[in-house]
Amino acid sequence: MPVMNLVQAVSYTLASEMARDEAVVVLGEDVGKRGGVFLATEGLYDQFGPDRVIDTPLSEAGIIGAALGMSVHGMRPVAEIQFAEYVFHGFDQLVSQVAKLRYRSAGQFTAPLVVRMPAGGGVKGGHHHSQNPETHFVHTAGLHVVYPSTPSDTVGMLRSAIRSNDPVVLFEPKRLYRAVKEDVPEDPDHIVPVGRAAVRREGDDVVLVSYGGSMAETLQAADALAEQDVASTVIDLRSLMPWDRDTVLEHAARVGRVVLVSESPHTAGFMSEVAATISEQVLDHLLAPPTRVSGADTPYPYAQDRAYLPGPRRILHAVQRVLEY
């Protein structure tokens, strides 16, 4: 099996899907010869040429809107937004046009497109190269929202996204782009279905739930707990819309103590939904309140870049609270 990191998994999967299906095209800023500023489209321009790997003018509204217009012709555009926060220039296209097309046309028109964007902090990028805006899109009916954290999942989920007949917003944890290499499945039809979480390890003392970039710190916290003989179950949500409620509830009910880790802002973040659902559905099984560890409700700061992120120290504090409850 080929060994690669997360950003290589993106270009690998794009190449594989473009070879399989002529309808798949890539568009965005600097995706051509430059191969994308993170090299997520490296090699594609040479392999597939300028008609299928399109360097666009610098306009996110243009990129997403044009991807939509192409998709109603049966094409399967994969749009790259250079950094997640720049999607706001194309927000109206995504939430007003793309998301609602199937609904408002009663299925006469659909938008089988993918919008990929690197997101997340810890890269000394300040306000506009660090954010996690996924909640905006979870709040927008009609979009699937996924956020893989490993190279293998990136392969399987990007492929699912490209083959989906609904629009998919795929976040990529840029701080993990080059963090680890692993074997990825070679089967050109290997997919990870949208809506399915992954249980990374199982233990009976506490359940840690996370997704995206924060999976790294969550797993570090789990290692630290293991050294203190605290056994954790770690769930990687991977998909936020739809999310794998059954897997989370099963483990929450079995263990009774849950810590929810996400680096996006705390208030009304995705983990608020998970916490509320756990409380509503399995309250009788809980031994402590589901407890969130989040990014702050501030703009993403430059000077306190790492402090903003929920690191192992803050995760362990929360675990201690639920264990001692």
């Binding site: 610098l58 926060e85 720049y86 706001f88 220039h89 000394k124 990028g125 300040g126 306000h127 506009h128 190269h129 703009p299 700061p301 430059y302 000077a303």
Partner: peptide, 25 residues
Amino acid sequence: GARQMPSHPSSGPLNVFTALSPIAS
């Protein structure tokens, strides 16, 4: 106050509006 990443200058007294990353905003 070092709130933004490098290359984002500003000056209140000299009426230099704080630069922002999103192009053209």
